[in-house]
Design a protein around this nucleic acid. Sequence first.
DNA 1: CAGGATCCCGAATGATACTG
DNA 2: CAGTATCATTCGGGATCCTG
Lengths: 126, 126
Amino acid sequence: MTTYDVYAKNCPTRLVLDRLADKWALLVLNRLREEPVRFNQLRRDIEGVSQKVLTQTLRNLERDGLIRRQIFPTVPVTVEYSLTPLGQTLTRTVAALAHWAEENIDAVLTAQQTFDASRASHAHLR
Amino acid sequence: MTTYDVYAKNCPTRLVLDRLADKWALLVLNRLREEPVRFNQLRRDIEGVSQKVLTQTLRNLERDGLIRRQIFPTVPVTVEYSLTPLGQTLTRTVAALAHWAEENIDAVLTAQQTFDASRASHAHLR
DNA sequence: CAGGATCCCGAATGATACTG
DNA sequence: CAGTATCATTCGGGATCCTG
C-alpha cells in the first residue's frame, strides 16, 4: 500500500486539505476547541465573518463530521455547535498552526517589510 | 503579556492564518518539504494549478519569508524554489495537517455520505 | 524556462428582506 | 435566535498571447 499522491487532482486527501484551507473554518475550529458555542456568539467572536458565510462554513464542517449541531427547543430556539471526537483530533493540529502563527508573526512581518522595501527600491513605473 | 485575540480582525496572527488558509500554499509548502523545485516542475507536480496562480502563491510565500527564490543565470534561466529555515519550521505543522487528512479521509467521506443521505431523505422541493 | 500583461466569466461574497 | 432566499456586485482565477 503506497501513500496517496497528495498532489494529484483526484487525491481524496486534497479534498480534505482544500476544506481546511479556509480561514473561517480554521477560526471556527479553533474557537470551538474551548467550548461549545452558539451561532450568534460565534458570529460576534469571529470578527468580520458574515452570517451567510458563517452558516456555510458551519454546514461544511458539519458535513465533514468535524462539528456537531445541536438544537434546543427553547423559545426562541437555541443552536449549539461543538466539536465531534473526529473534530477534536483535528483541532490539535489546527492549534499547532495557530501557535506557530503567534510565535512567528514577527519574523513574517519583518520578512514582508524587507520584501516590500526591496521591491519599492527598483520600482520604476508610475 | 496576554495572548493575542486570534479572532479579532486586527490580530496579526490572523494575517498569517489567512495566508496559510490557501490550498495551493499548503500544497507548495508540502512539496518543497522534500527538495528544492523549479517553477515548471512545481506546475507539473501540483495538478490543477495555473501558471498565474502558482506565481502569485510563490510570491506571497516568498514575501512572508517562508520560501527562497534562487535564480541561476543559465540559458534559458533557471529558477529554483526552496524552504527557508522559517519555512521549514512551519512545514512540520503543515505535514501534520496532511498526515491527519490522509489518516481521516475515510471518516470524513463517510460523514459526508451520511449527511447528504439524511438531507436527501427530507428534501421536498423540486 | 519563468514569468508578465490582458481579457473575461463564473463563483463567492455582501446587503437586504423575510421566517419558523 | 438562527437561519433561508434573493439580488447585486466583485474579484479571483482560467485562458491566451507575449517577453527577457
